[in-house]
């Protein structure tokens, strides 16, 4: 079932300064439900800026972003926070987790803020952590987990909110190749089995190879967009 999740039109982000930087320059982009898409490009090409705007973390200078038909650009700060909570899952490069909470509590955290009831929370936390292969680490704190394990908890946490899609800005940048492969396996499986939409940026060729669609940015513009 093809369905438009993200649609940007003439999306631009310009940083004014000594020199004007067009971090994202007139981007028209459509993402369908169920995609497994990589945003690639050289450093400074605007990947993070684009993902942040799509995720409602940053505001465009001009243009529009629609998520499931809802326009983000006019939203107020608190509306945006609430929108992120209910519609978007995030996985960052690092510092994804609350250090004082266990893997279980970190995963549960989003659902607590969504006021999901306890029985459902417990059930989902256990299911998600077992899907990312961490059933035996549920009561460990982030400091007791490896980088790869932490990123897997972050994926579980991102999915806990039942988001419309998951945004991951260089999720594997701090991981060794084995952990990278492992995390990608999990993401690909969730995408295939659960239909979760993933949009991630990366520099890593092995990660790019796993994507089914690769969008390449240079100087804030889409220079290529290939489906595989």
């Amino acid at each position: 079932m093809e369905q438009l999740v993200i649609e940007t039109k003439n999306l631009s982000k310009i940083y004014e300064g000594a020199v004007e930087v067009r971090a994202v320059d007139n981007v028209d982009l459509q993402i369908q439900n169920g995609e497994f898409t990589a945003i690639v490009g050289p450093s400074g090409s605007g990947k993070t800026t684009l993902l942040n705007m799509i995720g409602g973390l940053d505001r465009p200078t001009s243009g529009s972003i629609r998520v499931n038909g809802v326009e983000l650009s006019g939203m107020r700060e608190n509306e945006l926070i609430d929108f992120r909570l209910r519609h978007i899952g995030f996985v960052f490069q690092s510092y994804n987790l609350i250090p004082v909470l266990t893997a279980r509590e970190n995963t549960e955290f989003i659902m607590l803020m969504q006021n999901v009831d306890k029985a459902l929370r417990n059930e989902r936390v256990e299911k998600l952590l077992s899907e990312v292969g961490l059933s035996d680490k549920m009561d460990s704190r982030p400091s007791q987990l490896s980088g790869g394990q932490q990123q897997r908890v972050a994926v579980a946490r991102a999915l806990a909110s039942k988001p419309d899609f998951v945004l991951a800005d260089e999720p594997t940048a701090n991981l060794d190749s084995k952990s990278t492969a492992n995390l990608l396996d999990i993401m690909a499986r969730l995408n295939r089995d659960e239909g979760t939409t993933f949009i991630f940026s990366t520099h890593d060729q092995r990660v790019i190879d796993r994507a089914r669609r690769v969008i390449t940015l240079v100087d804030g513009k889409i220079v290529s967009d290939e489906q595989r």
Partner: peptide
């Protein structure tokens, strides 16, 4: 900073 930013990013509102 990063941790609090992350909390706000994932949906923790300002009053919380």
């Amino acid at each position: 900073t990063r941790e609090i930013g992350m909390l706000m990013a994932v949906g923790m509102n300002k009053s919380k």
